[in-house]
Design a protein around this nucleic acid. Structure first.
Lengths: 216, 216, 216, 216
DNA sequence: AATGAATGAGCATTCATTCAT
DNA sequence: CATGAATGAATGCTCATTCAT
């Protein structure tokens, strides 16, 4: 929406030009994870980067636009992570699904700020993330859907409705990440154990004999 | 809505104002449910009950204390719901677990704002919910734990570590509720189908043969 | 809208209570005439009276409510002025109309701040002054209407449609006041001459022979 | 609306940008008419013409200077309107005065925002509109003055002091336009009726027998 | 037990303007 | 001739909280 965007959109020239935009985004992310969405304000970002609040508006039309940009980045990053994972195990659906689950959880734990605005914000609390972007968001689920379908075709998964199953898998992963981020999991349980169990059981619920994932 | 009303006090309780604390909590809950956590302010509560904002501070040290009390109430309510459910199927662990899952989800969907402050608020962003309360909160998980253990003893569940499994079940349920509340589930999927599938798969992942819950 | 209003509405107890409300109104009026409507801000009022901006909101729901209160006061004052005038010449319609015209102009010149918000504000620039108050505002025109009608009955005025004529008389007076307040009148013309001529011609336009007002 | 457009410059003028000053004024006028004086900002003008806000300052010292130029243009336009009218009825003073009155009112209603900055802005609230321009502004009144004097010479008008009378006529017209623009006229009165009556009575007040304008 | 009065800090956003280039 | 970057001041308004009574 401003000249910078228009003229140099994705150019990584490194000049002082797009840098501030980048800095704003990064700072917003950091504040987001530290203080939460409710406490993220244009002023706080400005104070943090030692610029006037007005300056932020040179790079983002308004607070929502800034958030949307952040969401977009998060979606892209998650997509990249999942895509890399899916390519690694392209011919082993069970192992692939397992890897995708782990990748999703890792993404959430490694990028709590992205995760919060991507998946934990109630829609009524923010001007709706533009519809076109939603489509892109849903692409991320396609990786799971594909693994599930392929596994079903190969007889290693029992799946009634792939669409529904994709969503319930997502629910499990989302719950796992959310509880961990909110520090709600029993502290006596090791994080890794919890994650491994969550993933294993999630996959197990789609394998015919209920046996552990047969590694491919 | 203010002093005038106060004088003609048409409040349904009609009792003396010794239980103003009670009224505050009830009103806070109502506002929470109707307007959301973000819109819950001391002022609004006060306006609603026709008392001065100052009065609230006679009963609660600050907003956080009020919120803690609310969370406590939510925990109690959830406990009551789960307790009632557990009693109904005290001798059928699978069916009981299934019912508990459904009860949990129903609670979340029926009390979205309660659910938010109980499970979705990050502790680091609120003056820490006192540790003792957390213990009480964990009681709610005991219902699931018990069903799981009992089922394992009866051979209808395969459970390695009940503590961990309880948490992963909880993760699934939490994810299910969260996605629904955030309106993130594919709109083409019927809500009931989604919930039923989520619960069924969750339980299925703990049954030896992977077959659907054998009704007891 | 707040306790002060409700409990002591018009009581002139002189305690420190309603005083601030009064001070706010007076200060707003002064700022209004000095800086104009566009430059009237809650903060400026607050700064002027050495109170926090927040305090103003204890006495007025918002800026509009403050303006409305001011308009209301102006309407009341104008009504009082016109009423007093009308009573003085209750049986001499021409002289009465003349006196009413002068009273209106004098009111405008003596209370430019009231005049501006009462008559010069474009409706789209302020949330509409509540309808009930408009009725009261129109009452002020009734004095002119009555004089005109009575004069027509007595044969000293030629009036086709009293309603329309009342409005055109008002237009003349409003134009006279507005030009004077905006300091747009040729400086070589004495203010009194201008006013007298304006009033005389206005009345003359309704007298049958075009002769000057026959003093009764 | 920004740099991109700028490059493809689909501006209707197509001429070189030597007359950017002209474009700025035109755009400012459009915005003034469409959005009102309050919404006229340097930024918005700049955005509209696809130039940087800074560029405007190359042609106008500040916002006031721009506004002055706009007022000047308005005065010129009004002058042109009145001039054309005066020429049409150069030998019929009554009809001419009537036409001038109508032309003035029409100008005000057709150019409400022009009218606002020309006649409704209080000088003390804007860096003083330069004195020399005021003189030019007064030229517009000369048309009325001339008609009045000529009519007086011809015996169709009774005028004591043409200067004063010109001003009171102006007051009537200004009041008429102002009330209409402020939407303060009784809605039950047709606009045309109101205007016709206002003009008729205004002229009537200068005709000896008080009879309606004798068409010449 | 309850309140009225008051406030400082905070919010998103807009504005006219400057200055180095 | 034209701009991009930047800003300080301003806006209406809400909030949790305090304190004397």
């Amino acid at each position: 929406m401003n000249a910078v965007n228009h003229c140099m959109s994705a150019s990584p020239t490194g000049s002082s030009n797009g840098d501030l935009r980048r800095t704003i985004l990064d700072t917003a992310r950091h504040l987001l994870v530290q203080k939460g969405y409710q406490n993220l304000s244009m002023r706080k970002i400005a104070r943090e980067i030692d610029y006037s609040a007005t300056s932020i508006y040179l790079y983002f039309d308004n607070k929502d636009a800034l958030l949307h940009a952040l969401i977009h980045e998060g979606m892209m990053k998650l997509y990249a992570d999942l895509d890399a994972t899916a390519h690694q195990y392209s011919d082993a659906p069970v192992r692939r699904l397992e890897a995708l689950c782990n990748a999703f959880i890792e993404f959430g734990l490694a990028n709590p700020e992205y995760y919060e605005i991507m998946f934990q914000l109630r829609p009524e609390r923010m001007k709706r993330y533009p519809a076109e972007k939603y489509r892109q968001a849903r692409q991320n689920l396609e990786f799971f859907s594909a693994a599930l379908t392929q596994g079903a075709d190969a007889g290693v998964f029992e799946v009634e409705d792939p669409r529904v199953s994709t969503s319930t898998i997502w629910a499990s992963l989302h719950g796992t990440v959310s509880l961990l981020l909110a520090e709600r999991v029993d502290v006596r349980i090791e994080r890794e154990t919890f994650i491994d169990t969550a993933v294993r059981q999630t996959i197990r619920s789609y394998t015919p004999s209920g046996q552990p994932a047969p590694s491919g």
